[in-house]
Measured scan of single mutants.
Amino acid sequence: PEDLERKVRELQKNGVSPEQIEKILRRDGVDEREVQELVKKVS
């Protein structure tokens, strides 16, 4: 979803590592495939 992507970009802009971003997304209940997609987009 659009807002998730925005969140991921925000986190990355704040210097959060892709690994941390993955953890955060998983903790928020984002589905694994979605997590991978989002992280791939920003890394």
Rank of each mutant, 00 (worst) to 15 (best):
V42M: 14
I24P: 00
E5G: 04
E5C: 13
K13L: 10
K40W: 14
G15P: 00
E37L: 09
R33F: 08
G29R: 01
S43Y: 15
N14D: 07
E10W: 14
R26P: 01
N14A: 14
Q36S: 07
K7S: 03
V30G: 02
V35D: 01
S43V: 14
K13G: 05
L4S: 03
Q20M: 13
I21Q: 00
V39W: 05
E10Y: 10
L11G: 00
S17I: 03
E10M: 10
L38K: 01
L25E: 00
K7G: 01
S17Y: 03
E19T: 06
K13F: 07
L4H: 04
I21D: 00
D3Y: 09
V8Q: 00
E19I: 06
L11S: 01
V42D: 04
P18M: 15
E2D: 12
P18H: 07
N14K: 13
D3W: 12
V30R: 03
Q12R: 14
R33D: 10
E32F: 06
Q20Y: 05
V35P: 01
I21S: 00
V35F: 07
L4M: 05
I21H: 00
R33I: 08
E19N: 05
G29E: 02
D28H: 13
Q20K: 05
E34L: 15
V16R: 06
E37M: 09
E2K: 11
K40S: 11
D3C: 14
I21T: 01
L25I: 03
R6L: 11
E37Y: 09
L38C: 05
E2W: 12
G15C: 06
P1S: 12
R26V: 12
V8S: 01
V35R: 02
I24N: 01
I21G: 00
K40G: 10
E22W: 12
V8N: 00
K40P: 02
R27N: 12
D28R: 05
Q12M: 15
I21Y: 00
K13H: 07
P18N: 10
R9I: 08
Q20S: 06
S17W: 02
Q12W: 15
D31K: 04
D3K: 05
I21P: 00
Q20G: 07
L4D: 01
E22Y: 12
E10Q: 10
Q12Y: 15
E37A: 12
E32Y: 06
K13Y: 07
V42Q: 05
P1H: 13
E19G: 07
V16C: 10
L4Q: 03
V39M: 15
R6F: 09
D31P: 14
Q36C: 05
E10V: 06
V42K: 03
K23L: 13
V8Y: 06
D3M: 07
R33H: 09
K41F: 08
Q36M: 11
S43G: 09
N14W: 09
R33E: 10
I21A: 01
Q12G: 04
G15K: 03
G29C: 07
E34H: 11
K40D: 08
R9K: 09
R26T: 07
D31C: 11
V30D: 01
Q36D: 05
L25A: 00
R33A: 13
D3I: 06
E32T: 04
Q20C: 13
K13N: 08
L38P: 01
V16S: 06
L11A: 02
N14S: 12
E22P: 01
N14I: 10
P18I: 15
E37G: 04
V39P: 01
E22C: 15
R6G: 08
E19A: 10
V42S: 05
P1A: 12
Q20E: 15
R6E: 10
E5Y: 13
E37W: 09
